[in-house]
Simulated scan of single mutants.
Amino acid sequence: MRSGAQDDPYREVLGRLAEGADHRDAERLLLSAGWMPCGAGDWAVAYRAPDGRAAARVSPFDPAGPYTAALYREAAHTGQVPRLFEHRRLVGGGDLQLLEWLSPVAAEEAAEFHRALAAREPEVAALVDVVRRVHERGLRESPWFAPKVDDNPDNIMRTEDGRLVAADLFSADGPKLYATVLDDPDLVVARIPESERRFMTELPLTYTGPWSDETREAMRNGLAASDARR
């Protein structure tokens, strides 16, 4: 899936990404086009555009990615979400988003924004309505969608023109999902097609720490055996 604003200056980059591309292909393309690595989280790595005005978020596996992109599109009128230039689902369950460049804010300022969201204060009411609508959609449609909106202060950031915006409010319920991969891979295989989970053991896990090689191998073997039984 592709999406982007009509005045998107970065569309040409994704125009060179093949339809069957995965996260590795996306990363190679960005690097060859001069984008520079600029950070990593649990689910994705980030690259900064050569002009410094955009960031690419690349995940090998992110079931919540389409819902985050939907939030950015549907709440764009509020000015309280990042501007989304492009969104592409990648082969194997990956996700690529090209966004305007964002900077961190003080923890107190971020916490106040989250408090306003939780209370549905008038200045963020329109955003809250979209957040709730898209989150409910994710809960209905996506297995192991996180039951709560993420209130991490790091998710509140500032645009170059000074706006406070909410980013990455949705995610999969990683602990439950990956515990199920190990304990009941048949259930994961039944609910998530192979084409949407092929690279689910390749998350960067920068904050919570990487899995051991043995754990990754056990996950892959369990899923492969379940796929074979089906």
Score class of each variant (00 low, 15 high):
D129Y: 05
L17T: 01
G15S: 09
L127P: 05
W101E: 09
A44V: 02
L177T: 10
A167I: 04
L164K: 02
V91E: 15
L139C: 07
C38Q: 07
D42G: 01
V149P: 15
R120L: 04
D151K: 01
F61T: 00
Y67W: 15
F113N: 08
D95K: 02
V165W: 00
P185D: 07
A166I: 08
A106Q: 10
A111K: 15
D161S: 10
P104R: 07
H23I: 00
T68E: 09
E19D: 15
P204N: 09
G174C: 04
W43R: 08
G162A: 08
D8M: 11
D129W: 08
H135G: 00
L99S: 08
P122D: 15
I156C: 03
F61S: 03
G41A: 05
L187T: 12
G79F: 04
P66N: 05
F170T: 02
P9A: 00
L182I: 04
G79L: 01
A111R: 15
P50H: 05
A225Q: 13
P147C: 01
T206D: 11
R83H: 05
R57D: 02
N152P: 00
L223H: 13
E27F: 01
A110L: 06
L99P: 01
A146H: 10
G209M: 04
P210V: 12
V188A: 08
E160I: 00
S59A: 14
F199L: 13
A118T: 14
A225P: 10
V58S: 03
V165Q: 02
L84T: 01
A55T: 10
D25A: 09
F113W: 06
P50F: 03
D62L: 11
G15K: 15
L96H: 08
G222K: 08
T68C: 05
A21L: 11
V131L: 14
G41V: 08
E136F: 04
A49P: 12
G162C: 03
E86H: 12
S59C: 01
H87Y: 14
D129G: 13
E74I: 00
D154S: 11
T208I: 13
V81S: 03
D186A: 12
Y72S: 00
R53N: 05
G222N: 12
A69R: 07
P193C: 13
A75C: 12
T206C: 03
K148N: 14
L14Y: 11
H23N: 08
L17G: 06
D168R: 09
T208S: 11
F61H: 04
Q97P: 08
M157P: 01
E202N: 12
D95A: 03
N221Y: 12
W35P: 11
D62V: 07
A172K: 02
L177R: 04
A224K: 02
D154Y: 10
L182D: 13
P82S: 01
M157A: 13
A40G: 06
D154Q: 12
A40E: 05
S226D: 08
K176R: 15
L99I: 01
P63S: 09
V131Y: 07
T201V: 15
E100R: 06
T215Q: 08
G65C: 06
A56W: 02
G39I: 00
